[in-house]
C-alpha cells in the first residue's frame, strides 16, 4: 500500500491527483483515473480522496470471473488485459471506487501503485512510500 491518504482535511478538491492518475495511464481526463474525490456532504465540509489501498486480499481480484487480476506480492493487483472480458465486476467490488475505466478498450484501469498522484498533489494530502 504505497499511497496513503495522509490528511483529507487538507484536500482542496482541485482534482490534480485525478488528472495525474490519468496521465500515468497515458490518458487525459477523468475516466481513466483510479482516484475519486468528492465533497463530504457539501463543499463547506471539505473533501475525501479515495485511492487504491493495495489490499493484501483484494476483493476486485476475487470478483473477477476471468482471473484477469492477479494479486501482487506487496498488495494491489495487476491486470492481464487479454484475459479481461470488460464485465466491470472488479469496479463494483471496490468499496473505494478506486478503479478507473477505459471505455475505448472497455476494460478497467487499475492502480499501478506508481505514486504520481502523491507527487502531483499540491498540498501533500497523499503520501507515497515505496514498499
Amino acid at each position: 500500500m504505497p499511497v496513503f491518504v495522509k490528511d483529507n482535511e487538507k484536500c482542496v478538491g482541485c482534482l490534480i491527483c485525478c488528472f495525474a492518475c490519468g496521465r500515468a495511464h497515458m490518458a487525459v481526463g477523468l475516466e481513466s483515473s483510479c482516484i475519486k474525490v468528492s465533497s463530504i456532504g457539501g463543499i463547506s465540509r471539505g473533501f475525501a480522496v479515495y485511492v487504491c489501498r493495495g489490499c493484501i486480499d483484494p476483493p476486485c481480484s476475487r470478483a473477477c470471473p476471468e482471473d484477469a487480476l492477479s494479486v501482487r506480492k506487496n498488495g494491489g493487483v495487476l491486470l492481464k488485459e487479454d484475459r479481461c472480458n470488460g464485465c466491470g465486476a472488479c469496479v463494483k467490488a471496490c468499496i473505494f471506487d478506486a478503479i478507473g475505466w477505459n471505455s475505448k478498450k472497455n476494460k478497467p484501469v487499475i492502480c499501478i501503485q506508481c505514486g504520481e498522484c502523491a507527487r502531483n498533489c499540491p498540498y501533500r494530502v497523499l503520501e507515497y512510500v515505496r514498499t
Binding site: 482542496v12 482541485c14 482534482l15 490534480i16 463543499i43 463547506s44 471539505g46 499540491p122 498540498y123
Partner: peptide, 16 residues
C-alpha cells in the same frame, strides 16, 4: 477555516 479549489486548479484561492 478551509481553502478550496475549482476543479483542475491547484491554487485553491477560495478562502472560507
Amino acid at each position: 477555516s478551509r481553502r478550496v479549489a475549482c476543479s483542475h486548479c491547484p491554487v485553491a484561492c477560495i478562502h472560507l
